[in-house]
Amino acid sequence: MKWLALIAVIATGSLLIYAVSDFPDWGSASSPANGGVEGAGRSVSQTFIEETDTLTHVPNIVTAVLADYRGYDTMFETVVILAAGMAIFAILRVLRDTEKPVDQSKHDPSIDGDHQRIIIGTTCRLLIPVIQLFALYVVAHGHHSPGGGFQGGVILGASFILLGLATDLETAIARFSEKQFIGLACVGIFIYAGFGVLGQFYGRGFLDYGALQPIFMTDGEPMARSHAMLGVEVGVAFTVTAIMFAIYANLASKGELKNGL
């Protein structure tokens, strides 16, 4: 089996290395992906770089392409993340009461005098608000600096995971219960799709943020697009936060949501 695998892998690899010699040079600005093909017009990325600031007033081109030009793509990526969370729920979650004797000493640090737990708990209590504040900054400032809904959502979810790791899963679940995180994940998708449908009420296409100008009361459509992108990113951040914590909570406790790591 191992020899067969090695032969297959080496055959695939040598074919790919043979194909690599036809690639454009490293860092070439005139390769088909960067500079377009002669006779077939410009590359779409050139238009993105040149027109984004005029059309959307968003300096971070990646955010603009993510939330506006490729809005459908991002919306359904978010739906994929929600579906992954629901799949884990369906695979692992145990809904009946297993009636395991709960280890009391694990929950009360004062009984066994577990100093390590006190030190880690106190440190995390100081650290977690800072992490969450940074996550909110990453979401809200994703237009002007690297960041956005996905990154901020993951950091916000990781702050809850840190709480669950440092104390125990019950403490984290008490802050962010199962009903809340499933609800929040769905609310995120609804916010994203809601911004799309709002545009349709003004007689424009789905996810056409320029139509939202009367709602945001901006002077001109580019600024409205910028505001709508922020709203959409907030929706993405909600879903990602909730699903990251849901995946951790189910994986760490075999789907019982108690007695975790």
Partner: peptide, 8 residues
Amino acid sequence: VSAVFLIA
């Protein structure tokens, strides 16, 4: 996050 998932 993915390292934490693997460890869990």
